[in-house]
Amino acid sequence: GSPGIQSFLPPGWEMRIAPNGRPFFIDHNTKTTTWEDPRLK
């Protein structure tokens, strides 16, 4: 199987799917959430 997208996120980050189907990202380091992919910064 191919590695999940989770493995490509920075340490402490998690990806979830919102009720509307959009992915969002949780930064457990700062306890914040964002719509922006942290890998694109």
Rank of each mutant, 00 (worst) to 15 (best):
G4I: 12
E14P: 00
P19I: 08
N20P: 02
E36P: 01
R39P: 02
P3G: 12
L9K: 01
G21C: 15
Q6N: 15
I17Y: 13
P19F: 07
K31M: 13
L9W: 05
W13I: 03
E36T: 08
D37F: 03
I17L: 11
P11R: 06
G1H: 13
I26D: 02
T33E: 08
I26E: 06
M15Y: 04
D27A: 01
K31N: 15
T34I: 06
R22H: 10
G1A: 13
K31D: 11
I5W: 11
P19V: 09
R39G: 06
T32S: 09
K41G: 15
R39K: 03
I17D: 02
P19W: 07
S2N: 14
R16W: 05
G21V: 00
A18S: 10
G12Q: 04
F24H: 08
P23M: 10
I17W: 11
E36M: 08
M15A: 06
T34F: 07
S7Y: 09
H28S: 07
N20C: 12
T33R: 11
T30W: 03
F25V: 00
T32P: 00
G21S: 03
W35T: 06
S2F: 10
P23N: 08
P11K: 08
P23V: 12
T32Q: 09
G4Y: 03
P19A: 12
S7V: 11
I17V: 10
G4R: 11
E14L: 02
G12I: 01
N20Q: 02
P23Q: 11
P38V: 03
G12S: 03
P11E: 11
I5Y: 14
R22A: 08
P19D: 08
F8D: 15
W35A: 04
W13Q: 00
L40Q: 12
W13T: 00
L40Y: 11
N29H: 08
G21A: 02
G12N: 08
F25P: 03
P38T: 01
D27F: 04
G21T: 05
G1M: 11
G4P: 14
K41E: 13
G1S: 13
T30H: 07
I26T: 06
P10R: 05
G4V: 11
S7N: 15
H28K: 06
H28W: 15
S2I: 12
F24A: 07
I5P: 13
G21M: 02
G4C: 15
I5V: 12
T32F: 09
S7C: 14
P3R: 10
T34V: 06
P11F: 08
R22V: 12
K31L: 09
S7W: 07
Q6D: 15
G21K: 06
R22E: 14
I17Q: 06
K41Q: 15
P3S: 12
N20T: 07
R39A: 05
T32G: 04
T33M: 15
